[in-house]
Nucleic acid binder design. Structure first.
Lengths: 103, 103
DNA sequence: GCCTTAAAGTTTGTATCACAAACTAGTTTA
DNA sequence: TAAACTAGTTTGTGATACAAACTTTAAGGC
């Protein structure tokens, strides 16, 4: 029979969002609505390689929408939270608050 | 063994506390003041091995105080947050809120 | 044309680390 | 004596965060 334990069944904190670098990225996107690669580079302080892979993961998860285009004949990438990403971020923050709410 | 360093300032979210399992542990300790191994096992849902290593890291960092004794001829371990752990947890929560507080 | 530098990302190698399985040490039960 | 239980610890491994190296395209000398 199933235990009545209140222990979280899965991951209480969505690891995709909880990871520190991505949490910064997502919270910036939540503020900015739209942001390009260089802006995120600047605000997060990550290296290009690091930012690139984190964005790829967020995109693969469907949390972030990516638009690639050429501006002044140079590549330019914009990112924005998807509806799913926004919802996941909301859930994450609620879960975190629940977890750390005592005092 | 690597020297256990605690909370280098400049690091936005103290990784020692931010990691999901340890965040649960620390927040439980913040509530309970004192907790033994089995209680943490129960409340966190971690395996023994996992809990053991996480506690070792928190102790090594000076965030948690460990008291080992024999109760009924059996080993028994109690944990509590140190002053440093309490302070680090406070800093962590403030940093998190700052990070995720978008207007 | 040819070299150098720069911008904008991507790919790759490595070091860390979370996780559970296996193990240790001692105790109780049969 | 042996099997089973309690209370943890150690070990092997798979995942992954990170920065260095690489790719690609463009612009600026010479």
């Amino acid at each position: 029979m199933t235990t009545a334990k209140a222990a979280p069944p899965g991951q209480p904190l969505d690891p995709l969002i909880h990871e520190a670098s991505r949490l910064v990225i997502v919270s910036v996107l939540a503020e900015c609505d739209i942001a390009d690669f260089n802006f995120l580079l600047d605000t997060t302080g990550l290296t290009r390689g690091n930012l690139s892979t984190h964005m790829a993961r967020l995109v693969a998860a469907g949390y972030v929408q990516e638009t690639k285009e050429f501006v002044d004949r140079k590549p330019h990438t914009d990112y924005r939270l998807s509806a799913a990403g926004r919802a996941a971020y909301k859930r994450y923050r609620e879960a975190w608050r629940r977890l750390t709410s005592h005092s």
